[in-house]
Design a binder for these strands. Structure first.
Lengths: 194, 194
DNA sequence: AGGCGAACTGACTGCTGGGTCGGATCGGAA
DNA sequence: TTCCGATCCGACCCAGCAGTCAGTTCGCCT
């Protein structure tokens, strides 16, 4: 009764613990008992809320993926010019990586029964993201000053480049704060036609 | 005696089998027995050549990583202007992903005792790659027409962007052949100052 | 107080799979 | 042909852990 845990909150509690444990050890090395301990409950209780380790893992990743996707959509929806929006996307990605850095790499984890089920969902999110950026670029093209590059390639290049600049910051050394703006600027000049 | 396997060749044989099995199932799902079967030998024999599953895995990944790194250095060393070299890097990455697509994601796999030991080596390779590209860019800057962007950010942006354009081709749909050149062009214009 | 169901628990079970090892097989030297 | 070391093999051993379940505690109602 000392920890947070009023009835339905227990599920959240377990998910949060799972996030921490899975993030540090990965799926296979994580023991359900560790997650239970981290959540301050008994192992059996985990199975009152989730039918299996795999299901718990799935639930956790989907939750995170969805929060990322909806956050991104919100950022893109905010008013502003192209540069402002691209910066917003970058910031959103940066914040996400800061919070879920270790978990993010799990989206690229090895295949297997666990991830098979995730693939469709994650692919869907990725497609949507690319499409949203494409739409931004198409709008920019319509507004004039943009040379006629393939928006699909440009969108993927931009997103991949962002990851290339931001992700290493977590595993290598911290990316300087101005790296984000630089990236956007290089990209913008890259597609500019003025 | 039907398969290839003359003495020292057996180690290569096992490594090749390991590559195939690990690529399809990932580290944890792969059973040593499967690898042995795939290599056409008994499970015990695997342990004549490798002390453990983990060591076999490590050996395999390091081999691939090194072949990637040395191939890249060779490509960069070839004479040609900046555009030609960047294209070469892209082609090299594309070919590598085509051959080792599934394994490539393993470099980003979950943490744990297995990968800990790899981290330094892979980080080293990544740093070298970034530095080599930085050097190319610095040379381009010296040669004149290039605005003064941070070469570190630009290099990471370029490499990440390449991966963003090429990797999805494997998991999503095939990247069109011209995507590579487009990527390089966008990037080049992005850093151009003429 | 007392009774009841819901929530919780961790000792226990069964299985999976890494690593071992005694014995089989091979191939070349004498 | 015989012998011997090197190589190969897979049945066996056992540690680790997901999932179960019989028993306990909790908290609410009467």
């Amino acid at each position: 009764m000392e920890a947070t845990g009023t009835q339905a909150g227990k599920e959240k509690q377990i998910l949060a613990a799972a996030r921490r444990i899975f993030a540090t050890t990965g799926y296979y090395q994580a023991r359900v008992e560790d997650i239970a301990r981290e959540a301050g409950i008994g192992k059996g209780t985990v199975y009152e809320y989730f039918t299996s380790k795999e299901e718990l893992y799935l639930q956790m990743l989907l939750e995170i993926a969805d929060s990322y996707a909806s956050g991104l959509a919100e950022v893109i929806g905010r008013p502003g010019d192209l540069r402002e929006k691209l910066l917003g996307i970058g910031r959103h990605l940066r914040d996400f990586l800061q919070e879920h850095g270790q978990l993010a790499r799990m989206f690229l984890q090895d295949p297997g029964p666990v991830n098979r089920k995730l693939q469709d969902h994650l692919l869907q999110i990725r497609r949507e993201t690319v499409q949203q950026v494409e739409k931004l670029l198409a709008a920019g093209a319509a507004a004039g000053h943009m040379r006629p590059v393939d928006t699909g390639v440009a969108a993927r290049f931009f997103l991949g480049g962002l990851a290339g600049v931001l992700l290493p910051g977590l595993i290598e050394e911290l990316a300087p704060p101005e790296a984000l703006a630089m990236t956007v600027d290089i990209f913008l000049q890259g597609i500019d036609s003025s």
